[in-house]
Amino acid sequence: MNAHVPALEGGGQVMAIIPQTFEETFRVARAVVASGLAPSSLVGKLTGDDAASAVAIVIMSGSELGLKPMVSLRSFTVINGKPALYGDGLINVVRQSGKVAYLRTGCDIVGGKMVGWCEAKRLDTSEDKRVEFTQDDAVRARLWDDRATVKKQIWENGQKVWRDNVPNDATWYRFPKRMLSWRAAGYCLRELFGDVLGGIRDEFEEREIARSNMRDDPEMRDITPKDQSESSSPAKKSLTPPRPPKANVEPAKEETAPVDNSQPQEGEFVLGEFMENLETSLSSAKDEEAAEEIWNDFDAPAVLETEGHADMIDAAFAVRDRALARLNSLNGG
């Protein structure tokens, strides 16, 4: 006789699984990694317990703000090792705090340009605030990119190749109104609901801080090549971004020679080499025009985003800014 199996019934309340201890949190994190649900922006190339540790940190950071584990994974990103909330994640945390009388965001057109805004009021203290973030603000912050097409690497026939006139899929190009309003919300809510957010910033502010810290790092200021003879070559000598090494053309050796895994393989992007070549090329520029041409040829933001190194885009901008500052000082600017 078969054992009685209770039938499933609909209409019950769905409860989220909320870990109560670190061990439980790590078990959930391992399950997230094993299922492939861990965001690539969070774990990158990490695997195993290293990836699970990154997921666990985000789950714990979210729990301090009242977010459920899976909501935390959808709301957080990691910038330079620090958790930061996406724009909608920041708004979500504040809304569910119970301290909001009202919270509104939007984007208007003023003088032919977009102006994102956020206005909010606290329920407990009656404090209110309105903050605007304009299209001009986004341009100054190097967030704005109104090019319909860009030069970037794309996958073709199983390998990455450079192509011109690729549709610009950057978030700031596709959703400018939303991004402007979220940026305004970041400033507004951080000031008005600092106790609710507990020091967690939005992704935009965290990137700005990372960029500022890199500029202030004394070890990052000197971009003069060690070999001064390199600077005597023409400014456009190193314009071409690094390409993957050519395949071995000696089949006999390929069959017997051991593979050196310490060297980059064909089609592999080497972050350190790319950043070093960018910095060396910019340091050889004789004037700002040559530096801008080198920068445009490398197309660092698009390359780094494509290769999964979006967290290094600010570092690339810092390299460019230092080069331009050096040229400006040399020219008496």
Rank of each mutant, 00 (worst) to 15 (best):
P83I: 13
F76T: 01
T77D: 11
A84F: 03
S63I: 08
A84N: 01
V78E: 14
I59S: 07
V55C: 07
V93S: 03
V71C: 11
G62P: 04
V71E: 15
I91K: 02
K82S: 06
N92E: 10
S75A: 15
V94S: 05
N92F: 06
K68H: 14
L67E: 12
S63G: 09
N80I: 04
S75I: 10
S72L: 06
L85F: 04
V93E: 00
V78C: 11
G87F: 01
D88S: 13
I91V: 14
F76M: 04
D88N: 11
G62A: 09
E64M: 15
P69E: 09
P83R: 13
L85W: 01
M70H: 07
G62Q: 09
L90F: 00
V93Q: 03
G87M: 01
M70W: 13
I91W: 02
G66C: 07
L85P: 05
K82N: 13
M70K: 09
I79H: 07
V58K: 03
V58T: 12
P69S: 06
V78T: 12
R74M: 15
L73H: 01
V55Y: 03
N92G: 05
V71G: 13
V55N: 02
F76C: 01
M60C: 13
M70S: 05
V55G: 01
V58C: 05
D88P: 02
A56L: 05
Y86I: 06
N92M: 08
T77N: 11
V55W: 04
F76Y: 02
V55S: 05
K82G: 01
V71I: 15
V58A: 09
D88A: 12
G89R: 00
S75D: 12
L65Q: 04
L65T: 04
S63D: 11
I59Q: 11
I79G: 04
T77V: 15
V94I: 03
L73C: 06
V71W: 12
S75V: 07
L65A: 05
G66H: 08
E64K: 15
L85E: 00
S72I: 07
G66F: 07
V93M: 03
L67K: 08
I91Y: 00
V71M: 14
G87D: 01
V78R: 14
L67W: 12
I91P: 00
M60G: 08
Y86H: 03
D88R: 12
V55F: 04
I79S: 05
D88Y: 03
A84P: 04
S72C: 08
F76H: 00
G62R: 02
V71L: 14
S75L: 10
P69A: 12
